[in-house]
Amino acid sequence: MAFHVQNVKKQKTRSNFTFNASIGGAIPLLLLLTLLVLLPFVFIFIYAITNKGESNYIYLTFDNFAQFITEPNFLRSAGMSIYFAFIATLICLVIGYPVAYFIGRSKASLRNILVMLITIPMWINMLLRILAWKQIFELFEKWMNVEIIGTDFAILFGMAYDLLPFMIIPIYTSVMKIDPSLYEASKDLGANPIKTFFKVTIPLSMPGIISGITMVFLPAATTLVVTEKLGGGKSRYFLIGNIIESYFIRQTNPYVGSAIALILSVIIFLVIFLLNRLDRTVVRDRELTTSVKKRRKA
């Protein structure tokens, strides 16, 4: 008995010590997150509400916000960013869904190969892939005597090509989780394949669709490379990413640029928040129906 008590005591002290040692390991991470992730956001905020006077003194102002609200160029760019990103997302969804469905329903051996084939291009620098398309487009322009670079087609194609894997991957994971007996049940109950697709497959893959949309829309709206390299220098393709670039790197007015970035991140958080809410209500809805059913059975 005495031995037992002693043993317990020993273990207790030991685990107390370990506790602190392990948590100590997290200190570098916490420091890094504070200094290099949170602090920079504080600086965006500070820059957004200040400006530099003539003799290098810094003063508080809201002009940075006023400047781009009154500037028609900015609003037009913001509108165009949303417009192009929206269409690119739609294209990704329409083109990517069948591929995701195919991958999600194929056998594990084929599926693994297909997923690997989808992921490999994602590892490769998007700048290089976009430049590759630019050369292919130039080739087509010479062969067929059409204008491709500097058209809406080129921009949308670049965005959709670049972001298609981000749409396919979340959708295929949720298609994979659908029990195939549901398709049979739907068939047995008299639904044709089209009806089954719209009433069973699409609703059950909704979480994947939603996360795919977030993963495509945001990078498409803030792209810098696609518009710069495939836009042919036209002002129509000067989107929000290019505006931020011009304020920070070309004109070096980080104050107005920060104000834009701040607004942008607020919008992004709203979008993500709303989509998460939507996702949760979809999931909750489904869980609710199952739990009601269980109770009924009981």
Binding site: L33, P40, F43, I44, Y47, T222, P254, S265, I268
Partner: peptide, 27 residues
């Protein structure tokens, strides 16, 4: 909370992360 801060660079488009770091380094 720490994990959601950790996710900030993952959910934010690169350009926002880039701008935030640049303002810090400018300061």
């Amino acid at each position: 909370f720490v994990l959601s801060v950790n996710n900030l660079p993952l959910v934010n488009p690169d350009i926002v992360t880039a701008v935030s770091l640049m303002t810090l380094f400018l300061a």
